[in-house]
């Protein structure tokens, strides 16, 4: 079964390139948009399973990809967002994640990797690039805090371990093997981290999001 995808990016060249890169056996690109307003309209019209969303977009209220994701929360959880950007800036990444995106990958990754990431997001899981994992570790701190596991503002020891492995460039499968747990468990941990990233009130995160007018 193919996954229905909408690509939102203001560069037509990039949209075309990405479309050509995606595996046609698994993924059908049903629509494209180049700015915030048309993206919101097209997503509501087509209700794709996954939206590949650039962080920096013209139009709307100037909120870029984060604004698109936030404006389409009424379609959740049927429509899921995967952020894809050239930006390395923590506030860009964190703001779009906090607006509801299920993952973040950089534009330099290969077509096969994007396809896999789209499938993962479509399946309800979270996708973390090594860089996003690095941001998470930076924002939550790297100290072992297993004692206060229940709080949203802290990562459990296991979640820290998983984030570290992803930051080191491990795939979920490799991380699972390294920690002697199943890939499914890794996915659960990553989803939990994503939830904390979206809901935590840690000031590093609120600051990043606040700068983009998302609070």
């Amino acid at each position: 079964m193919t996954t229905r995808v909408v690509i939102v990016d203001d560069h037509a060249i990039f949209r075309t390139g990405l479309k050509a890169d995606l595996d046609p056996a698994d993924i059908a690109v049903v629509g494209e948009a180049g700015d915030v307003d048309s993206a919101i309209r097209i997503i509501h019209e087509l209700e794709p399973e996954v939206v590949l969303l650039d962080v920096h977009l013209p139009g709307g209220k100037g909120g870029g990809g984060a604004e698109v994701a936030a404006s389409c929360q009424d379609l959740a959880p049927e429509v899921r967002f995967l952020a894809i950007s050239v930006s390395d800036a923590a506030e860009d990444v964190v703001s779009v994640i906090r607006a509801g995106a299920r993952g973040y990958v950089t534009k330099t990754i290969s077509g096969a990797e994007v396809s896999a990431a789209v499938q993962r997001v479509a399946g309800g899981d979270a996708v973390f690039s090594p860089r996003l994992a690095g941001f998470v570790l930076d924002a939550f701190g790297t100290a072992d805090v297993a004692v206060r596991d229940e709080e949203l503002d802290l990562l459990s020891a296991r979640e820290l371990e998983v984030m570290r492995l992803i930051a080191r460039g491990y795939t979920y499968r490799e991380a699972a093997k390294d920690l002697f747990i199943s890939v499914r468990t890794i996915e659960t941990h990553v989803s939990n981290v994503l939830r904390k990233l979206q809901l935590s009130n840690r000031h590093e995160l609120t600051r990043w999001a606040g700068e983009r007018g998302l609070l």
């Binding site: 690095g134 100290a143 930051a167």
Partner: peptide, 17 residues
């Protein structure tokens, strides 16, 4: 290659993969 460096309070670690 991928490099991950983590500077903690007790140690600095670098991973090159």
């Amino acid at each position: 290659a991928r490099v991950y460096a983590e500077a903690g309070p007790a140690a600095v670690e670098i991973f090159v993969k």
